[in-house]
Design a protein around this nucleic acid. Structure first.
Lengths: 384, 384
DNA sequence: GCGTTTTTTTTGAACGTTCAAATACGATAT
DNA sequence: ATATCGTATTTGAACGTTCAAAAAAAACGC
C-alpha cells in the first residue's frame, strides 16, 4: 500500500479513473451513486479509490457546485462552557446532516469578530449560526443566517429564549426569597448587546414591580475570562460585594460569570448562600457540581443546537420557507447557591416556600426540579 | 449600497475587474500587492472591491495554488476545558500566521475520529494538529502532522510533555505527604492511549520506588462527560472511594476527571483534602477557583498551542527542517485539594514540609507556587 | 441483420482563482 | 522616426470537480 514513488500530492478523480480504466465522470457517478453504472465498473472504481486512498477535494466540488457543505459557527469565547458545549452539539448535528462545522470565536472583541466573519465568508460557508455577535453585522446577502442570541430580526432565522422574561423570573425568585438588594453582574464577552439589554430589562422590571428602584452601585460589568482574576473590572466586583450597602443576592448574566462572582465572594469570606445568593444563566455542566451548586436559568442548549442546525440546513435545502422565529422557554433550576435573605428590616413577610429553610441553606443538596412555574407561583406572594 | 438587482451570488474578481474597468489579473495583483500596478488603477480596483463587498473565494484560490491556509485541529471533547482552551489559543495563533482553524472533535470515539479526520483531509487542510487521537491513524502523506498527545513518533512533529515523569512526580508528591493508598482515575476520552499509558506508568513507578505494589481496586476508568454523572463507570468510582480499603489520595489523568472525582467525594461526604487528597492534570481555569482549588500538574497550554501552530506553519512554509521533538516540563501547582495523609500505621515519618499542616488543610488558601522542583526536594525524604 | 431504444460511458465546459507568458504602453536613447 | 527597454496590463491555461450533452455500447424488436 506504499506509493512513495508517486508525487506527494493527493490523488484526483483522474488518477482513480486511470487506474480503474474508466473516465472522470464515471468515478464521480460511483461516488455519488447516481447514474447507471455497471456493477463490474463500480467495483473496479471502488477498488481504485481504496487503492489510492482517494478523497474528494471539497474545494473543487464547492467551486463547481457553487455551494459548500460548511456551516460557520460564531461563538463568543471558547473558554466559556456555554459556547464550547454548544459547539460540540452543533458539530454533531451538522455532521448528521452532512455538513462540516467551521468554528470561529469573537473573543468578545468587535474587530476580532469582524475578521472571523470575513474568514467565514471567504470560505463561502453555506450558513452562519451566530451564537455571539455584535449588533453591527455586515450584510451577507448570499449566506443564510441563523441568530441564536440577540433579538428576533428581520432577516435570517431567530432561535432564542425570552431573555427578558427569564431574567425577570429569576429576579422574582430572589425577591420571593426576601432579597431586596439584588446585584446584577454582566460580562463583556456576551452573546449580543440586545441579549444583555433584555436580561437587564427583565431584572429592572422585576425590581420595579416589587417597588424597588435601580441602584447603579449594584450593577457591575466584568472583564472576560476566569484566568484574569485581577482585572480592573474584578475590582468593581469586589467593591460591590464588600461595600457597606452590599447586595444579599446577585443575578449573573451567565454561569461563567456567576463562577467569578462566587469565587470573589469566597475570597471575601462571604458565605454562599447564607450571606449571598447567586443566580446564573445557562446551566453549564459545572453548575451542577455539588461544590458549585449554582441556581441558574437553564437553557435547552442541545435543543437550541439541534434547532439551529435544522434551521440552517432547512433554509438551504428546503424550498418551503420555515418559520423564522422560535422562542424557547428556559427553566429556573434551583440549587444551593440561593437561600432566604438574611433577616433585615425589609423582610417583613418571609414567604412560605415549599422547602424548609434548613434545606435551602445546605449547598450540598441538589434540588434541580423547580421550574419556571415554581417561580411563577411564588412571585405574586411577594411582589407587592 | 444596495445591489438587490444583482444575482444572489457572491461577486468575483471578474465583477470587480469589470466595475474597475480592468482585468482579472490586475485585481488579483492589487489584492496581493504584488506586481507593478499604477496607483490610479489600484485606487479604482480598491473602490470596486469595497463597492461590491468582494471577498476572495478561498476554495478557488486553494484549487489553483494547490494548498490551503487551513489548519485542522483534532481535539477529544470540547466540553473538556483543556481542549476548548487549547482550541481558543490555536485559533488565535493560527490567525496571526494567516491561517484558519478547522476544528473537529473525536468525542473519544474511534469511529467519530475517523470520520472527522476524513473530513479534514477532504478539506485538504495544510496540516493537522492532533491534540487527541487513537494510535491507529490513517497515513496522510501529503498533510503535515503535529502531534501534541501520545509519544514521539517517526513521522510528523511531536510537541508534548514528559507524561511519565509528570505523573511520577505528582505521585511522589502524594507519597511525600504520607499517602500510601493512592488511587488512579482515568477517563475514556483521553488524548492518546500512549499518554494514558505513560501517565499510568509514572504512577506505578513512583509507587514501586516507594515499595508499594499496584492495587487494581484503586484504578478506575471513568466515562466521559460531567453531564452523565450516573454512568456505569461512575459507580466504579463510588465503590472505589467508599470501599473499606479506600484510598487517601487519588491521581486523576485530567482536571476534568478530577472534578468528577471531587464531586463524587462530595456526594459521599468525604472531606477534601482531610480525608481524600486529589491531584489532577492540566491546570484548567476551573482548578484555580477557590471552591475547587485543585492541586494539579500544570501544562503550558498557551505555549503548547503556540508551538504547535509554529511547528505546523513552519513545516509548511520553511524549507529548513525544524527539530521535530519538543518536550516540555510541566510543573506541579499545589493547591488546597491535597494535604498530609490522615494518620495511619504506615505514616511513620511525617515529612517536614515548608507549609504548616494547618495551612495545608485549608482549601481556600492558594499556594500555586510549588513546582516540580519542590516535589523533587521532598521525594527523597520519604521515598524509602 | 438492422433500425431503435435503453443503458452505460465519455467529452467539453465551467466554477473563481492564480501562474506564466504575452502584449500593450511610455519613455528614453539612438 | 525607430529601436530599445522597463513598466503596466491582459490573455490563456490550469487547479479538481460536476453538469449537460454527446457518444458509445448493449439490449431489444421485428
Amino acid at each position: 500500500m506504499d506509493h512513495s514513488g508517486a508525487a506527494a500530492r493527493p490523488p484526483t478523480v483522474i488518477d482513480v479513473a486511470n487506474l480503474a480504466g474508466t473516465s472522470r465522470q464515471t468515478v464521480s457517478n460511483v461516488i455519488h451513486g447516481k447514474a447507471h453504472v455497471r456493477e463490474q465498473t463500480r467495483k473496479r472504481v471502488l477498488a481504485a479509490i481504496a487503492e489510492l486512498e482517494y478523497r474528494p477535494n471539497v474545494a473543487a466540488r464547492h467551486l463547481k457546485r457553487r455551494r459548500t457543505n460548511v456551516l460557520g459557527v460564531l461563538v463568543g469565547d471558547l473558554a466559556n462552557p456555554f459556547y464550547s458545549e454548544a459547539a460540540r452539539h452543533i458539530e454533531h448535528y451538522a455532521e448528521q446532516r452532512g455538513y462540516t462545522m467551521l468554528l470561529a470565536s469573537t473573543g468578545g472583541e468587535r474587530e476580532t469578530e469582524q475578521r472571523r466573519v470575513e474568514s467565514l465568508i471567504e470560505h463561502r460557508v453555506a450558513a452562519v449560526i451566530f451564537l455571539a455577535y455584535s449588533s453591527q453585522q455586515p450584510t451577507i446577502e448570499y449566506i443564510t443566517c441563523v441568530f441564536v442570541a440577540g433579538l428576533p430580526t428581520s432577516h435570517g432565522v431567530f432561535i432564542g429564549v425570552d431573555e427578558r422574561k427569564s431574567a425577570e423570573q429569576a429576579t422574582s425568585f430572589l425577591l420571593s426569597l426576601g432579597h431586596r438588594r439584588i446585584g446584577y453582574v454582566n460580562t463583556i464577552v456576551s452573546s449580543h448587546p440586545d441579549s444583555d439589554k433584555a436580561r437587564f430589562a427583565g431584572y429592572r422590571r422585576a425590581l420595579s414591580k416589587a417597588g424597588i428602584g435601580l441602584d447603579d452601585a449594584l450593577v457591575v460589568r466584568l472583564g472576560s475570562g476566569i484566568e484574569t482574576p485581577e482585572s480592573v473590572r474584578q475590582h468593581d466586583l469586589q467593591r460591590m460585594l464588600s461595600g457597606p450597602g452590599r447586595p444579599t443576592a446577585v443575578l449573573c448574566a451567565a454561569d461563567y460569570t456567576a463562577l467569578q462572582v462566587m469565587d470573589c465572594a469566597d475570597g471575601l469570606g462571604l458565605a454562599i448562600p447564607q450571606q449571598l445568593s447567586i443566580v446564573g444563566f445557562d446551566d453549564t455542566a459545572y453548575s451542577a457540581l455539588r461544590r458549585i451548586s449554582l441556581t441558574t436559568v437553564s437553557y435547552p442548549l442541545r435543543e437550541i443546537a439541534r434547532l439551529s442546525v435544522d434551521a440552517a440546513v432547512g433554509a438551504l435545502e428546503d424550498s418551503a420557507p420555515k418559520r423564522n422565529r422560535i422562542l424557547m422557554q428556559p427553566e429556573l433550576v434551583v440549587r444551593g447557591s440561593t437561600a432566604l435573605a438574611p433577616t433585615s428590616p425589609e423582610t417583613v413577610d418571609p414567604p412560605a416556600t415549599d422547602a424548609s429553610p434548613d434545606e435551602q441553606r445546605r449547598p450540598q443538596v441538589r434540588r434541580s426540579v423547580s421550574t419556571v412555574d415554581t417561580v411563577r407561583v411564588r412571585r405574586p406572594r411577594n411582589a407587592r
